[in-house]
Design a protein around this nucleic acid. Structure first.
Lengths: 218, 218
DNA sequence: CTCATGGTTCGATCTGTACCGAACCATCGC
DNA sequence: GCGATGGTTCGGTACAGATCGAACCATGAG
Protein backbone atom coordinates (compact mmCIF):
# COMPACT_ATOMS: atom_id res chain seq x y z
CA UNK A 1 0.00 0.00 0.00
CA UNK A 2 0.95 3.60 -0.49
CA UNK A 3 3.60 2.59 -2.91
CA UNK A 4 2.64 5.64 -4.90
CA UNK A 5 4.73 8.38 -3.37
CA UNK A 6 7.94 6.44 -3.67
CA UNK A 7 7.67 5.86 -7.34
CA UNK A 8 6.56 9.49 -7.57
CA UNK A 9 9.92 10.54 -6.19
CA UNK A 10 11.75 8.71 -8.95
CA UNK A 11 9.36 9.79 -11.66
CA UNK A 12 9.72 13.39 -10.57
CA UNK A 13 13.45 12.99 -10.79
CA UNK A 14 13.17 11.74 -14.36
CA UNK A 15 10.54 14.36 -15.08
CA UNK A 16 12.84 17.32 -15.39
CA UNK A 17 13.98 18.16 -18.94
CA UNK A 18 17.57 18.77 -17.95
CA UNK A 19 17.82 15.48 -16.09
CA UNK A 20 16.01 13.62 -18.83
CA UNK A 21 18.53 14.88 -21.35
CA UNK A 22 21.34 13.60 -19.17
CA UNK A 23 19.71 10.22 -18.65
CA UNK A 24 18.96 9.63 -22.31
CA UNK A 25 22.51 10.67 -23.14
CA UNK A 26 23.67 7.92 -20.79
CA UNK A 27 21.45 5.32 -22.41
CA UNK A 28 24.26 4.32 -24.72
CA UNK A 29 25.81 2.68 -21.68
CA UNK A 30 28.91 4.82 -21.61
CA UNK A 31 29.99 6.99 -18.71
CA UNK A 32 30.13 10.75 -19.16
CA UNK A 33 31.75 13.50 -17.11
CA UNK A 34 29.85 16.19 -15.28
CA UNK A 35 30.85 18.78 -17.87
CA UNK A 36 29.68 16.62 -20.74
CA UNK A 37 26.36 16.05 -19.06
CA UNK A 38 26.00 19.77 -18.43
CA UNK A 39 26.61 20.31 -22.12
CA UNK A 40 24.03 17.82 -23.39
CA UNK A 41 21.49 19.25 -20.96
CA UNK A 42 22.26 22.80 -21.99
CA UNK A 43 22.83 24.07 -18.46
CA UNK A 44 25.76 25.40 -16.47
CA UNK A 45 28.12 23.30 -14.43
CA UNK A 46 26.79 24.19 -10.99
CA UNK A 47 23.25 23.35 -11.99
CA UNK A 48 24.29 20.06 -13.52
CA UNK A 49 26.30 19.21 -10.45
CA UNK A 50 23.22 19.63 -8.32
CA UNK A 51 21.08 17.48 -10.57
CA UNK A 52 23.68 14.75 -10.65
CA UNK A 53 24.04 14.74 -6.90
CA UNK A 54 20.31 14.19 -6.53
CA UNK A 55 20.17 11.40 -9.07
CA UNK A 56 23.15 9.79 -7.45
CA UNK A 57 21.72 9.74 -3.95
CA UNK A 58 18.47 8.47 -5.43
CA UNK A 59 20.40 5.56 -6.90
CA UNK A 60 19.77 6.32 -10.57
CA UNK A 61 23.39 7.09 -11.35
CA UNK A 62 26.66 5.50 -10.35
CA UNK A 63 29.88 7.48 -10.26
CA UNK A 64 33.50 6.67 -10.68
CA UNK A 65 36.29 9.10 -10.01
CA UNK A 66 39.33 9.25 -12.27
CA UNK A 67 41.79 12.01 -11.68
CA UNK A 68 39.92 15.26 -11.62
CA UNK A 69 37.07 13.85 -13.67
CA UNK A 70 33.96 12.18 -12.38
CA UNK A 71 32.39 9.69 -14.71
CA UNK A 72 28.68 9.03 -14.38
CA UNK A 73 26.73 6.11 -15.78
CA UNK A 74 23.29 4.64 -15.28
CA UNK A 75 23.30 2.51 -12.16
CA UNK A 76 21.79 -0.47 -13.99
CA UNK A 77 19.74 -1.80 -16.87
CA UNK A 78 16.50 -1.24 -14.98
CA UNK A 79 17.01 2.49 -15.29
CA UNK A 80 17.23 2.14 -19.06
CA UNK A 81 14.20 -0.15 -18.99
CA UNK A 82 12.14 2.45 -17.19
CA UNK A 83 13.23 5.12 -19.64
CA UNK A 84 12.31 2.87 -22.55
CA UNK A 85 8.88 2.25 -21.09
CA UNK A 86 8.37 5.98 -20.78
CA UNK A 87 9.53 6.50 -24.36
CA UNK A 88 7.09 3.91 -25.57
CA UNK A 89 4.34 5.67 -23.67
CA UNK A 90 5.38 9.07 -24.99
CA UNK A 91 5.29 7.66 -28.46
CA UNK A 92 1.80 6.20 -28.24
CA UNK A 93 0.29 9.22 -26.56
CA UNK A 94 1.76 11.37 -29.29
CA UNK A 95 3.59 13.54 -26.83
CA UNK A 96 6.56 13.02 -29.04
CA UNK A 97 7.52 15.25 -31.88
CA UNK A 98 8.15 12.99 -34.81
CA UNK A 99 11.72 13.64 -35.74
CA UNK A 100 12.14 10.13 -37.02
CA UNK A 101 12.29 11.43 -40.56
CA UNK A 102 15.49 11.55 -42.57
CA UNK A 103 17.18 13.23 -39.63
CA UNK A 104 20.43 11.45 -38.94
CA UNK A 105 19.97 8.33 -41.06
CA UNK A 106 22.99 6.74 -39.39
CA UNK A 107 21.06 6.74 -36.14
CA UNK A 108 18.10 5.05 -37.77
CA UNK A 109 20.32 2.42 -39.31
CA UNK A 110 22.03 1.22 -36.16
CA UNK A 111 22.45 2.61 -32.70
CA UNK A 112 22.90 1.40 -29.18
CA UNK A 113 20.09 1.25 -26.66
CA UNK A 114 21.89 1.10 -23.30
CA UNK A 115 23.63 -2.22 -23.90
CA UNK A 116 22.00 -3.70 -26.97
CA UNK A 117 21.54 -2.95 -30.64
CA UNK A 118 18.65 -0.87 -31.99
CA UNK A 119 17.72 0.52 -35.38
CA UNK A 120 16.84 -0.99 -38.76
CA UNK A 121 19.48 -3.70 -38.62
CA UNK A 122 18.39 -4.82 -35.15
CA UNK A 123 14.75 -4.87 -36.17
CA UNK A 124 15.64 -7.05 -39.13
CA UNK A 125 17.13 -9.67 -36.81
CA UNK A 126 14.01 -9.76 -34.66
CA UNK A 127 11.79 -9.96 -37.75
CA UNK A 128 13.84 -12.86 -39.12
CA UNK A 129 13.39 -14.82 -35.89
CA UNK A 130 9.67 -14.17 -35.87
CA UNK A 131 9.21 -15.10 -39.54
CA UNK A 132 11.11 -18.33 -39.06
CA UNK A 133 8.89 -19.36 -36.17
CA UNK A 134 11.72 -19.05 -33.71
CA UNK A 135 9.78 -16.48 -31.75
CA UNK A 136 6.09 -16.56 -30.99
CA UNK A 137 4.33 -13.86 -29.04
CA UNK A 138 7.61 -12.14 -28.31
CA UNK A 139 9.07 -15.29 -26.71
CA UNK A 140 11.77 -17.65 -27.99
CA UNK A 141 10.83 -21.19 -28.95
CA UNK A 142 13.22 -24.06 -28.29
CA UNK A 143 14.03 -24.04 -32.00
CA UNK A 144 14.98 -20.41 -31.67
CA UNK A 145 17.11 -21.16 -28.64
CA UNK A 146 18.94 -23.92 -30.49
CA UNK A 147 19.47 -21.79 -33.58
CA UNK A 148 20.96 -19.02 -31.45
CA UNK A 149 23.10 -21.44 -29.47
CA UNK A 150 24.54 -22.69 -32.78
CA UNK A 151 25.73 -19.16 -33.36
CA UNK A 152 27.27 -18.84 -29.94
CA UNK A 153 24.48 -17.08 -28.13
CA UNK A 154 23.82 -19.10 -25.02
CA UNK A 155 22.16 -18.61 -21.66
CA UNK A 156 22.02 -15.22 -20.03
CA UNK A 157 23.04 -14.26 -16.55
CA UNK A 158 19.84 -15.57 -15.03
CA UNK A 159 19.09 -12.26 -13.42
CA UNK A 160 17.31 -10.81 -16.39
CA UNK A 161 15.41 -12.32 -19.29
CA UNK A 162 17.66 -13.86 -21.91
CA UNK A 163 15.50 -12.37 -24.60
CA UNK A 164 13.36 -9.30 -24.25
CA UNK A 165 11.64 -7.40 -27.01
CA UNK A 166 12.00 -3.64 -26.96
CA UNK A 167 10.03 -1.24 -29.10
CA UNK A 168 12.35 0.42 -31.57
CA UNK A 169 12.29 4.17 -31.36
CA UNK A 170 12.73 4.92 -35.04
CA UNK A 171 11.38 1.79 -36.69
CA UNK A 172 8.29 1.37 -34.55
CA UNK A 173 8.79 -2.36 -34.53
CA UNK A 174 10.50 -4.50 -31.96
CA UNK A 175 14.16 -5.36 -31.68
CA UNK A 176 15.92 -7.71 -29.29
CA UNK A 177 16.98 -6.67 -25.81
CA UNK A 178 17.93 -8.56 -22.68
CA UNK A 179 21.10 -10.58 -22.35
CA UNK A 180 20.77 -11.79 -25.94
CA UNK A 181 20.60 -8.25 -27.29
CA UNK A 182 23.69 -7.32 -25.33
CA UNK A 183 25.56 -10.36 -26.63
CA UNK A 184 24.65 -9.54 -30.22
CA UNK A 185 25.98 -6.03 -29.83
CA UNK A 186 29.24 -7.07 -28.21
CA UNK A 187 29.72 -9.76 -30.85
CA UNK A 188 29.45 -7.17 -33.61
CA UNK A 189 31.95 -4.95 -31.85
CA UNK A 190 34.35 -7.75 -30.91
CA UNK A 191 34.44 -9.16 -34.41
CA UNK A 192 35.23 -5.72 -35.77
CA UNK A 193 32.05 -5.68 -37.82
CA UNK A 194 31.07 -2.37 -36.33
CA UNK A 195 32.38 0.33 -34.05
CA UNK A 196 30.88 3.04 -31.92
CA UNK A 197 30.35 6.36 -33.66
CA UNK A 198 29.06 9.74 -32.58
CA UNK A 199 26.67 9.51 -29.66
CA UNK A 200 24.57 6.38 -29.83
CA UNK A 201 25.42 5.63 -33.46
CA UNK A 202 26.91 2.27 -34.41
CA UNK A 203 28.90 2.25 -37.65
CA UNK A 204 28.81 -0.96 -39.65
CA UNK A 205 31.37 -1.05 -42.45
CA UNK A 206 30.34 -2.70 -45.72
CA UNK A 207 32.17 -5.92 -44.90
CA UNK A 208 30.98 -5.79 -41.33
CA UNK A 209 27.36 -5.43 -42.35
CA UNK A 210 27.70 -8.34 -44.76
CA UNK A 211 29.25 -10.57 -42.12
CA UNK A 212 26.55 -9.61 -39.61
CA UNK A 213 23.79 -10.33 -42.12
CA UNK A 214 25.37 -13.66 -43.00
CA UNK A 215 25.43 -14.75 -39.36
CA UNK A 216 21.73 -14.12 -39.01
CA UNK A 217 20.78 -15.26 -42.50
CA UNK A 218 19.40 -11.90 -43.57
CA UNK B 1 17.54 13.08 -30.91
CA UNK B 2 16.18 15.37 -28.23
CA UNK B 3 13.66 12.78 -27.35
CA UNK B 4 14.34 13.71 -23.76
CA UNK B 5 11.92 16.54 -23.07
CA UNK B 6 8.94 14.59 -24.28
CA UNK B 7 9.43 11.72 -21.96
CA UNK B 8 10.16 14.32 -19.31
CA UNK B 9 6.68 15.68 -19.73
CA UNK B 10 5.16 12.30 -19.01
CA UNK B 11 7.54 11.48 -16.20
CA UNK B 12 6.76 14.81 -14.57
CA UNK B 13 3.12 13.99 -14.82
CA UNK B 14 3.67 10.68 -13.06
CA UNK B 15 6.04 12.34 -10.64
CA UNK B 16 3.47 14.04 -8.47
CA UNK B 17 2.39 12.13 -5.35
CA UNK B 18 -1.30 12.88 -5.81
CA UNK B 19 -1.28 11.75 -9.43
CA UNK B 20 0.80 8.71 -8.61
CA UNK B 21 -1.74 7.66 -6.03
CA UNK B 22 -4.48 7.92 -8.60
CA UNK B 23 -2.53 6.02 -11.22
CA UNK B 24 -1.59 3.18 -8.92
CA UNK B 25 -5.20 3.00 -7.77
CA UNK B 26 -6.16 2.48 -11.39
CA UNK B 27 -3.64 -0.30 -11.85
CA UNK B 28 -6.26 -2.84 -10.96
CA UNK B 29 -7.70 -2.13 -14.40
CA UNK B 30 -11.02 -0.85 -13.15
CA UNK B 31 -12.41 2.60 -13.84
CA UNK B 32 -12.92 5.01 -10.95
CA UNK B 33 -14.87 8.24 -10.65
CA UNK B 34 -13.32 11.63 -10.07
CA UNK B 35 -14.49 11.64 -6.44
CA UNK B 36 -13.02 8.23 -5.77
CA UNK B 37 -9.71 9.30 -7.24
CA UNK B 38 -9.75 12.46 -5.17
CA UNK B 39 -10.29 10.27 -2.12
CA UNK B 40 -7.42 7.86 -2.77
CA UNK B 41 -5.13 10.81 -3.46
CA UNK B 42 -6.24 12.58 -0.32
CA UNK B 43 -7.05 15.86 -2.04
CA UNK B 44 -10.19 17.87 -2.69
CA UNK B 45 -12.38 17.51 -5.71
CA UNK B 46 -11.26 20.64 -7.56
CA UNK B 47 -7.61 19.71 -7.25
CA UNK B 48 -8.26 16.20 -8.43
CA UNK B 49 -10.28 17.45 -11.35
CA UNK B 50 -7.35 19.53 -12.49
CA UNK B 51 -4.90 16.63 -12.21
CA UNK B 52 -7.21 14.36 -14.14
CA UNK B 53 -7.70 16.88 -16.91
CA UNK B 54 -3.96 17.09 -17.38
CA UNK B 55 -3.44 13.35 -17.41
CA UNK B 56 -6.30 12.98 -19.84
CA UNK B 57 -4.99 15.46 -22.38
CA UNK B 58 -1.60 13.85 -22.03
CA UNK B 59 -3.15 10.55 -23.00
CA UNK B 60 -2.47 8.67 -19.77
CA UNK B 61 -6.12 8.34 -18.84
CA UNK B 62 -9.23 7.56 -20.80
CA UNK B 63 -12.64 8.75 -19.67
CA UNK B 64 -16.16 7.54 -20.08
CA UNK B 65 -19.18 9.52 -19.06
CA UNK B 66 -22.12 7.82 -17.45
CA UNK B 67 -24.88 10.00 -16.12
CA UNK B 68 -23.36 12.52 -13.81
CA UNK B 69 -20.31 10.38 -13.19
CA UNK B 70 -17.10 10.35 -15.10
CA UNK B 71 -15.21 7.08 -15.03
CA UNK B 72 -11.48 7.19 -15.53
CA UNK B 73 -9.21 4.29 -16.40
CA UNK B 74 -5.64 3.89 -17.62
CA UNK B 75 -5.53 4.46 -21.35
CA UNK B 76 -3.68 1.18 -21.95
CA UNK B 77 -1.41 -1.54 -20.64
CA UNK B 78 1.68 0.45 -21.52
CA UNK B 79 0.82 2.92 -18.78
CA UNK B 80 0.78 0.08 -16.27
CA UNK B 81 4.02 -1.24 -17.73
CA UNK B 82 5.74 2.09 -17.22
CA UNK B 83 4.46 2.26 -13.64
CA UNK B 84 5.72 -1.25 -12.97
CA UNK B 85 9.14 -0.37 -14.37
CA UNK B 86 9.27 2.60 -12.03
CA UNK B 87 8.20 0.43 -9.10
CA UNK B 88 10.94 -2.04 -9.84
CA UNK B 89 13.41 0.82 -9.97
CA UNK B 90 12.10 2.32 -6.75
CA UNK B 91 12.51 -1.06 -5.12
CA UNK B 92 16.12 -1.61 -6.16
CA UNK B 93 17.23 1.89 -5.31
CA UNK B 94 15.67 1.48 -1.92
CA UNK B 95 13.53 4.57 -2.33
CA UNK B 96 10.76 2.41 -1.07
CA UNK B 97 9.71 2.21 2.51
CA UNK B 98 9.35 -1.41 3.38
CA UNK B 99 5.73 -1.76 4.25
CA UNK B 100 5.66 -5.28 2.97
CA UNK B 101 5.33 -6.57 6.49
CA UNK B 102 2.16 -8.12 7.86
CA UNK B 103 0.23 -5.10 6.64
CA UNK B 104 -2.82 -6.31 4.78
CA UNK B 105 -1.98 -9.99 4.39
CA UNK B 106 -4.83 -10.44 1.93
CA UNK B 107 -3.04 -8.12 -0.44
CA UNK B 108 0.16 -10.11 -0.13
CA UNK B 109 -1.66 -13.33 -0.80
CA UNK B 110 -3.32 -12.39 -4.05
CA UNK B 111 -4.02 -9.14 -5.79
CA UNK B 112 -4.42 -7.81 -9.29
CA UNK B 113 -1.70 -5.97 -11.15
CA UNK B 114 -3.57 -4.09 -13.89
CA UNK B 115 -4.86 -7.18 -15.67
CA UNK B 116 -2.97 -10.12 -14.20
CA UNK B 117 -2.51 -11.87 -10.90
CA UNK B 118 0.14 -10.87 -8.38
CA UNK B 119 1.01 -11.91 -4.83
CA UNK B 120 2.19 -15.12 -3.20
CA UNK B 121 -0.11 -17.41 -5.17
CA UNK B 122 0.99 -15.87 -8.49
CA UNK B 123 4.64 -16.14 -7.54
CA UNK B 124 4.13 -19.82 -6.72
CA UNK B 125 2.93 -20.46 -10.25
CA UNK B 126 5.95 -18.76 -11.79
CA UNK B 127 8.28 -20.66 -9.44
CA UNK B 128 6.66 -23.95 -10.36
CA UNK B 129 7.25 -23.30 -14.07
CA UNK B 130 10.85 -22.34 -13.47
CA UNK B 131 11.57 -25.36 -11.25
CA UNK B 132 10.09 -27.72 -13.80
CA UNK B 133 12.31 -26.36 -16.56
CA UNK B 134 9.35 -24.87 -18.35
CA UNK B 135 10.89 -21.43 -18.11
CA UNK B 136 14.53 -20.55 -18.54
CA UNK B 137 15.89 -17.05 -18.24
CA UNK B 138 12.40 -15.68 -17.85
CA UNK B 139 11.24 -17.18 -21.14
CA UNK B 140 8.92 -20.11 -21.84
CA UNK B 141 10.35 -23.30 -23.32
CA UNK B 142 8.29 -25.32 -25.80
CA UNK B 143 7.63 -27.80 -23.01
CA UNK B 144 6.20 -24.97 -20.96
CA UNK B 145 4.08 -23.82 -23.86
CA UNK B 146 2.69 -27.30 -24.34
CA UNK B 147 1.99 -27.76 -20.65
CA UNK B 148 0.10 -24.48 -20.55
CA UNK B 149 -1.77 -25.29 -23.76
CA UNK B 150 -2.93 -28.53 -22.12
CA UNK B 151 -4.52 -26.38 -19.48
CA UNK B 152 -6.21 -24.13 -21.99
CA UNK B 153 -3.73 -21.28 -22.03
CA UNK B 154 -2.92 -20.74 -25.67
CA UNK B 155 -1.50 -18.00 -27.83
CA UNK B 156 -1.85 -14.38 -26.90
CA UNK B 157 -3.10 -11.50 -28.97
CA UNK B 158 0.19 -11.14 -30.81
CA UNK B 159 0.45 -7.52 -29.86
CA UNK B 160 2.15 -8.15 -26.59
CA UNK B 161 4.34 -10.92 -25.24
CA UNK B 162 2.38 -14.02 -24.35
CA UNK B 163 4.42 -14.39 -21.22
CA UNK B 164 6.14 -11.59 -19.39
CA UNK B 165 7.73 -11.76 -15.98
CA UNK B 166 6.88 -8.95 -13.64
CA UNK B 167 8.64 -8.32 -10.35
CA UNK B 168 6.22 -8.91 -7.54
CA UNK B 169 5.85 -5.95 -5.27
CA UNK B 170 5.41 -7.81 -2.00
CA UNK B 171 7.17 -11.09 -2.67
CA UNK B 172 10.22 -9.66 -4.41
CA UNK B 173 10.18 -12.53 -6.85
CA UNK B 174 8.68 -12.67 -10.30
CA UNK B 175 5.16 -13.55 -11.26
CA UNK B 176 3.60 -13.97 -14.70
CA UNK B 177 2.30 -11.06 -16.73
CA UNK B 178 1.48 -10.55 -20.38
CA UNK B 179 -1.42 -12.23 -22.10
CA UNK B 180 -0.82 -15.42 -20.12
CA UNK B 181 -1.04 -13.60 -16.82
CA UNK B 182 -4.30 -11.99 -17.88
CA UNK B 183 -5.72 -15.36 -18.93
CA UNK B 184 -4.80 -16.94 -15.61
CA UNK B 185 -6.58 -14.20 -13.72
CA UNK B 186 -9.73 -14.31 -15.81
CA UNK B 187 -9.77 -18.10 -15.56
CA UNK B 188 -9.71 -17.91 -11.78
CA UNK B 189 -12.53 -15.39 -11.81
CA UNK B 190 -14.59 -17.17 -14.48
CA UNK B 191 -14.37 -20.50 -12.72
CA UNK B 192 -15.54 -18.88 -9.52
CA UNK B 193 -12.35 -19.82 -7.72
CA UNK B 194 -11.83 -16.24 -6.70
CA UNK B 195 -13.54 -12.88 -6.78
CA UNK B 196 -12.44 -9.28 -6.56
CA UNK B 197 -12.24 -7.87 -3.08
CA UNK B 198 -11.43 -4.49 -1.63
CA UNK B 199 -9.15 -2.47 -3.89
CA UNK B 200 -6.66 -4.68 -5.64
CA UNK B 201 -7.31 -7.69 -3.42
CA UNK B 202 -8.34 -11.00 -4.96
CA UNK B 203 -10.19 -13.36 -2.63
CA UNK B 204 -9.64 -17.07 -3.13
CA UNK B 205 -12.06 -19.23 -1.22
CA UNK B 206 -10.74 -22.47 0.29
CA UNK B 207 -12.18 -24.60 -2.48
CA UNK B 208 -11.14 -22.05 -5.10
CA UNK B 209 -7.57 -22.03 -3.87
CA UNK B 210 -7.45 -25.82 -3.93
CA UNK B 211 -8.81 -25.95 -7.48
CA UNK B 212 -6.33 -23.32 -8.59
CA UNK B 213 -3.41 -25.15 -7.02
CA UNK B 214 -4.53 -28.41 -8.59
CA UNK B 215 -4.59 -26.89 -12.05
CA UNK B 216 -1.00 -25.76 -11.72
CA UNK B 217 0.21 -28.75 -9.73
CA UNK B 218 1.17 -26.76 -6.68
C1' DC C 1 55.29 26.30 -6.06
C1' DT C 2 51.99 28.26 -9.43
C1' DC C 3 48.47 28.14 -12.64
C1' DA C 4 44.64 26.08 -15.12
C1' DT C 5 40.84 23.05 -15.25
C1' DG C 6 37.03 20.06 -13.36
C1' DG C 7 33.75 20.04 -9.83
C1' DT C 8 31.09 21.51 -5.61
C1' DT C 9 28.86 24.75 -2.39
C1' DC C 10 26.40 28.96 -1.39
C1' DG C 11 23.05 32.79 -1.89
C1' DA C 12 19.62 34.97 -4.35
C1' DT C 13 16.13 35.17 -7.87
C1' DC C 14 12.20 33.66 -10.10
C1' DT C 15 9.00 30.69 -12.34
C1' DG C 16 5.86 26.92 -12.10
C1' DT C 17 2.41 24.57 -9.96
C1' DA C 18 -0.17 22.15 -6.17
C1' DC C 19 -3.62 23.41 -3.34
C1' DC C 20 -8.01 25.16 -1.49
C1' DG C 21 -12.58 27.83 -1.12
C1' DA C 22 -16.17 29.79 -3.58
C1' DA C 23 -18.87 30.18 -7.38
C1' DC C 24 -20.69 27.93 -11.27
C1' DC C 25 -22.56 24.13 -14.56
C1' DA C 26 -24.80 19.46 -15.38
C1' DT C 27 -27.48 15.63 -14.32
C1' DC C 28 -30.53 12.93 -11.58
C1' DG C 29 -34.66 12.18 -8.49
C1' DC C 30 -38.82 14.10 -7.09
C1' DG D 1 -40.35 23.33 -11.54
C1' DC D 2 -36.88 22.23 -7.06
C1' DG D 3 -33.04 20.47 -4.31
C1' DA D 4 -29.08 17.37 -4.04
C1' DT D 5 -24.99 15.41 -5.81
C1' DG D 6 -20.95 15.03 -9.07
C1' DG D 7 -17.62 17.95 -11.62
C1' DT D 8 -15.46 22.06 -13.44
C1' DT D 9 -13.63 26.79 -13.46
C1' DC D 10 -11.56 30.73 -11.24
C1' DG D 11 -8.70 33.56 -8.19
C1' DG D 12 -5.37 33.75 -4.80
C1' DT D 13 -1.71 31.83 -1.79
C1' DA D 14 2.28 29.48 -0.80
C1' DC D 15 5.91 26.40 -1.34
C1' DA D 16 9.31 23.79 -4.06
C1' DG D 17 12.94 23.71 -6.96
C1' DA D 18 15.53 25.11 -11.32
C1' DT D 19 18.74 28.35 -12.52
C1' DC D 20 22.81 31.28 -12.37
C1' DG D 21 27.17 33.93 -10.71
C1' DA D 22 30.64 33.96 -7.49
C1' DA D 23 33.44 31.95 -4.30
C1' DC D 24 35.67 27.83 -2.96
C1' DC D 25 38.10 22.95 -3.03
C1' DA D 26 40.88 19.28 -5.61
C1' DT D 27 43.77 17.48 -8.96
C1' DG D 28 47.09 17.51 -12.59
C1' DA D 29 50.60 20.13 -15.65
C1' DG D 30 54.60 22.79 -15.99
Amino acid sequence: MREGPYIAEIAALIGDPARTNMLTALMDGRALTVSELAHVAGITLPTASGHIARMETAGLLAAEKQGRHRYLRLSGPDVATALEALMELAQRTGAVRLRTGPRDPALREARVCYDHLAGARAVAVAAKLADAGMMVDHGLTDAGRAWLADRGFVRGDGRRPFCRTCLDWSERRHHLGGALGAQILSRALDEGWARRGEGRVIDFGQRGAAAFDRLFGL
